[in-house]
Design a protein around this nucleic acid. Structure first.
Lengths: 135, 135
DNA sequence: ATAACATCCGTACCATGGTACGGAGTCAAG
DNA sequence: CTTGACTCCGTACCATGGTACGGATGTTAT
């Protein structure tokens, strides 16, 4: 049971320590039990595999376009019973992703036209605005 | 030569009036000559086809992932002579777009797994975090 | 046991891309 | 020639997703 501190967790998740703390404040990550805890506030918190998985999930869900609020809901659903809600969220996001991917592909085509138009060695300005006109 | 006011320009570009003003402040859109201009500050500004094209370009360039700062550079290049710089910017963005599209496609696959796993009528929690694990 | 380093916590600040507000000026219709 | 809608302008505020600071405490290596 590999345990680590907040710095190790952050490293595993590919984020900074401050970002982990930010997620804790947002309620996306828990604040585990502290070691010993002699003083008033207690000691240092220890994190395990579950925390690492959870943090990684947050990051990949972000790339899927979920906001942190939505990710909070997903994490709640992961523990809950509402399969229908989870299914709906996933479906909605797939539709949004399909739109986004189409949008980016169209933009890519425009950029290709632009690179082509401005790639020649000929002088003068290249019609950047025009290259996007055909979208 | 269809002319319009800021509200018409905003409508054509699919943005709000305040957004147009914001772009003007950022230097992305110019502030054209005013009508009559009797008082101290002058009258109402009039916008034409070029302004509409420029505004639409800003919006589509945004969907391509350019920041407003980069769009400002592109607009400067459109008038300038630096074809090489324009070509470089376009190429860089194509690479970034390819990465982003791949990322979104992977996320889409995860969501499909998730929708599948949580779509059945069976009870209990569905493994949301796990559905993303295989990325 | 003491130095060096990490953690904890609240609070403040940051960048990006807007959105809102309020007062003054302008324009067109009745 | 007034009313009502629109414009202009500065300035303030907002949401999102962090990032930085600084003092107190905790941990660890020598």
């Amino acid at each position: 049971m590999k345990e680590t501190t907040i710095a190790g967790l952050a490293r595993e998740g590919g984020v900074g320590v401050e970002t982990v703390r930010y997620y804790q404040r947002r309620g996306l990550l828990g604040t585990p039990q502290r070691t010993g805890g002699v003083g008033l506030g207690g000691g240092i918190r220890r994190y395990g595999e579950d925390d690492i998985r959870r943090l990684r999930f947050i990051r990949t869900a972000q790339t899927a376009g979920f906001t942190l609020d939505e990710i909070g809901e997903l994490l709640a659903l992961d523990a809950g019973e509402d399969r229908h809600r989870a299914h709906t969220l996933a479906r909605e996001r797939i539709v949004a992703l399909d739109e986004k991917i189409a949008e980016l592909s169209a933009a890519r085509a425009s950029l290709l036209r632009l690179a082509d138009a401005c790639g020649s060695t000929s002088k003068g300005p290249c019609p950047i605005i025009t290259a996007f006109d055909l979208e």
